[in-house]
Design a protein around this nucleic acid. Sequence first.
RNA 1: GGCGCGGUAGCCAAGUGGUAAGGCAGAGGUCUGCAAAACCUUUAUUCGUGGGUUCGAUUCCCACCCGCGCCUCCA
Length: 465
Amino acid sequence: MSLHLYNTLTRNLEGFEPSDGKKVHMYSCGPTVYDHVHIGNLRTFAFQDVLRRHLRCCGYDLLHVMNITDVDDKIIANAQKANQSISEYTARYIDAFKKDTKMLRLETPEHITLATDHIDAMITLIQRLADKNLTYQSEGSTYFRIAHFENYGKLTRLDTSGMKTGGRVDQDEYEKDDIRDFALWKAPKDGEPYWESPFGPGRPGWHIECSAMSMQYLGATFDIHTGGVDLVFPHHENEIAQSEGATGQQFVRFWVHAEHLLVEGQKMSKSLGNFYTLYDLLDQNYSPEAIRYSLISVPYRKQLNFTFDGLKAATIAIERLRNFKRRLETETFPEGEASELLAAVARARDQFTVAMDDDLNTAQALGAIFDFVRDANTKIDSEDFFEGNRESAIDLLTLFDSIFDVLTMEADCRIPVEEIERFIEERSRARKNRDFARADEIRVELQRQGVVLEDSRDSTHWKYV
RNA sequence: GGCGCGGUAGCCAAGUGGUAAGGCAGAGGUCUGCAAAACCUUUAUUCGUGGGUUCGAUUCCCACCCGCGCCUCCA
């Protein structure tokens, strides 16, 4: 089986390969930086990270663009409240976003693009739409005229014919000919920041940045566009209208959307008090790796029930995998090799890959890994695991970690290795002399400093926790 | 109301027309100076409910119940 992804456009699982055969051109809707991102946002970004990593496992190169929306109504309102320019205001949250993603080990896309750096490209695109008679102006704003674009709604399959003009009027809705029409360029209200353009001063509408920036970096047609399910309509539908309206070509081949997460079975909301940012969880002493594991171990197309029990389970599951890895790296095995173990590794590798190829079925992929871990641990215990089995087993974990990336720990300012080893030596002498009081004292002291000792028959291993 | 996703053990969760992966938690055991780690045994005669198709359904069909999402703020 080769990689298959569920394409929202066709509502089908489809075999994926990049249109140029080698490099995947991919665009992801990033955050709007009016506040810190929350774990729901991070679930979607973590999914994108898993997709990236697996695409690379499939042998593809990546050209991945993620936008940061750094101008919109909320940003303008908040910046005005804070008496700051929008760039002063957003700088803090852009920085926070980059820190969050780094903490969760999300790979940085090849390009991270700010909307405000691409206003010219947006203006050019709007101009192209205007030239094709797909726009109109009203009260200083420019709108996309859906009535002139056939095929509107092909992503959503939504019956928009029943929508009526004048239904809802929010603060930024002006006069539109058709309720389905959407703003490409919004006229500024008093005191609002604006850019000059051939169709008057204003700022970009919500959707135009993604069309302009994705096509600028990836071409008129590209392979994959990702985002959360809530973006399907209207955001992505409108991106299609803008892009295909301008180019006459198919905009995106695969639309891939991540489901939302719930917290303890409930929709995350500030009013329910179950609204979390990454730092809310780190403050409760959950590790970034456990959070990452929790976010990616449920397949992306399923609603993720994010729970604190799950976070604890993730912490322990990671610990188990790390213990196993350390065993493989540090223990001494008899010479030779067990062919059934080589076969078990090959099987696990295969199952892992097949699962990931099947629309990134991370849960199933994990199952394959844990099956092998139990199998190999049993063999190690019974001394049926040989030197010749070490390398391929470690390679399997390397494959696993190339996607999951939870096994390594951040090097930080802990008690240095030499000191730990000195303690271990002293403790070994004490144990030999049956001075268990001193031996336990040392273990407790190291434990206090975040080092756990594990005695095996002939040696003592240690690990940071 | 329209469109869509889902309901599998205490919790999370995979999966299939042929009789239920995996993780966590629980119980018992092996090993150990103690501990940790690891392993073994055990924990769903059953997959929201009721019908139907079938030799056989958790898996297909229909109805119903419940949860969630979208229907122009939204990952």
